[in-house]
Design a protein around this nucleic acid. Sequence first.
DNA 1: CTGAAAGCGCTTACAG
DNA 2: CTGAAAGCGCTTACAG
Lengths: 368, 368
Amino acid sequence: MSSVRDIAEHAGVSISTVSRVLNNDPVVNRDTRDRVLSTANRFGYIPTIGRRVTTYLGLAYTGRRTLSAPFDAAVMDGAARGADESRLDLVILNLQRDKLPDETYTQFFLRKGVRGVILRTLSDSREACVAIAREGFPHVVVSERFDAPEVNYIDCDSKADTTRAIEYLISLGHRRIAFAMHNLPDCDHLDRLAGYQEALQNHGLPLEDRLVFRHPISLAAGGTVFKLTQSMPDGPTAVFFADPLLAIGAMRKAHEMGVRVPDEVSLVGFDDTDMRYAVYPALTAVCQDASRLGYHAASWLGRALNGSTPKRLQQIVPTFFEINGSSAPPRTNGAADGEHNAREAIRDGRVVSAGESVPSNGDEAANR
Amino acid sequence: MSSVRDIAEHAGVSISTVSRVLNNDPVVNRDTRDRVLSTANRFGYIPTIGRRVTTYLGLAYTGRRTLSAPFDAAVMDGAARGADESRLDLVILNLQRDKLPDETYTQFFLRKGVRGVILRTLSDSREACVAIAREGFPHVVVSERFDAPEVNYIDCDSKADTTRAIEYLISLGHRRIAFAMHNLPDCDHLDRLAGYQEALQNHGLPLEDRLVFRHPISLAAGGTVFKLTQSMPDGPTAVFFADPLLAIGAMRKAHEMGVRVPDEVSLVGFDDTDMRYAVYPALTAVCQDASRLGYHAASWLGRALNGSTPKRLQQIVPTFFEINGSSAPPRTNGAADGEHNAREAIRDGRVVSAGESVPSNGDEAANR
DNA sequence: CTGAAAGCGCTTACAG
DNA sequence: CTGAAAGCGCTTACAG
């Protein structure tokens, strides 16, 4: 628990200068400022409330805040559990609203009284994560990946299981498989696109541009994609959705249009919570557990702050592929080698066949 | 912005004693402590980080934390937007983990550095809200109601619209209507039960105990309820679900069992987000907007803290009743007066017939 | 159980 | 642009 005095001593300045830097006084020389801030980060300077050490962990979005999305709610829930382990509290920060243009990220976070920050980011604002990491402020990014070695992150790699999911569809006999993703894709959606392309290539199937749909994410967009696939000449017999809302929206539209799933078309989705069980038939899906991502991020950050774990984390968590009722051989079937491949996939232990049962874990129960 | 000195002066003690109280020093006389705390609350004492005033609004659960529930995610999203208006940040507090047994709520909140608190509560822990209110700490309870005049709250009254929903079913010709609710009900579920009972009584229908189901809340429980209703001799032709997850789970089970909705059975639910559109047919439902509740709570609390609004809030927000595709006349139909009642309901402006279109508002879009 | 006074951590005119 | 010193808000032995 270092004070302005410690920082002053090691940065070779007076406590007045340290205080000026922490308060973003523009009069301070830039080099002095950066030296003081990096010393503060190295020493793990902790803001106080009165004379008490703060217990706050920030949760910040580098771009638009998306708290109501199921993924974010699950991350938050997990992060709160992870923060519990170090008795830290989660505070939702608004970078866009509060960060002053001439302020460094470290200055902003210290001003807000947080000891470390969990970051959520989109492709268009991921550079902010790199900047925060370069300043040396304790952080971890949830659900993105970075080449820069300074950036701590925890992310799922869904490429391999997407390839597996597409190969499973191919093994069932599907030959025209469509793919739907975000029109402003992040790492994850690009992973899935790459996995899709790899599976097609592995099996000598053509990459058809007309079968790749890019839309903003919503239930309605999922419905739109589904309708488009149904009205195409020579349309797909199966569709993979890189996002849960797209998949649920498509399932809904299939019911509405009277198209039977999986008899007439197979739908395979991506799920990061339990939404695959909200529809019938339950979605065959590549799955990640968003709540676990949030939990691990907060748990690790808490331990990193009290020095009980290395200060570097670049972790890739595997997804899993779960076969449910929304996938089957295409109507005009002839998949001789299909069953063989499917069985093989199950043997290696990463494919789960969950059937149609709805898990009744207590976590899912809410009070309304 | 009052200091220990102000509080000391008005409470008639020294600043040492004020400090002891704020730090929960057990040596202080109880009466002195209570006098100091109530003075602190009256003066709106604000904790500081260093010498800066804090910008934190607490979000606390008096009982179990349920952050991943769609309702809570929506409340949080709205609360964050409300907090933006006063440039406050939301911090998730863990009362069960951190509040010391001998500490008052005010002491706990001041120690955590929050200026006011948004409370979520369940029926088994609602007394904590009353205690916080009696201490005078700035607060607002989201989604509960209290008789005690000190408690600030914002809540929906779903009783009237539940009565309306049940009367709508009766007008379609339904005579045996089941009702499913939480086995540990809060105000809201009890409201809906009361609304259900009132509608039956208004129309001279019997209150049958066998038609009221009480379960913990989950998709699986919704399925269980549905199955039970289908296997009853002389079972219901329509079921009302007091909770979204129960309703979605029931819809899923209906598909799974091959029971056609609404042809063979009508399902009517309660929705607090957009989940009614995730299934097909979209659920006819009594709806509240959880995001708006959270927004109003935080917005009001922020204004109350800077003194620009009265410090008392007891607000009941109306729900609305939305007719979608999951409800229709029963199979053995003969509802002569049905259409008349339905039209009447629509005329007064509170019943919305949304048909089957999925709203494509930007808010719903997430980045995954 | 309480207050007067010393002290801590930080900020802020003042001086250079 | 920086430091020495005064000061603010709070806490904490010390004394009673």
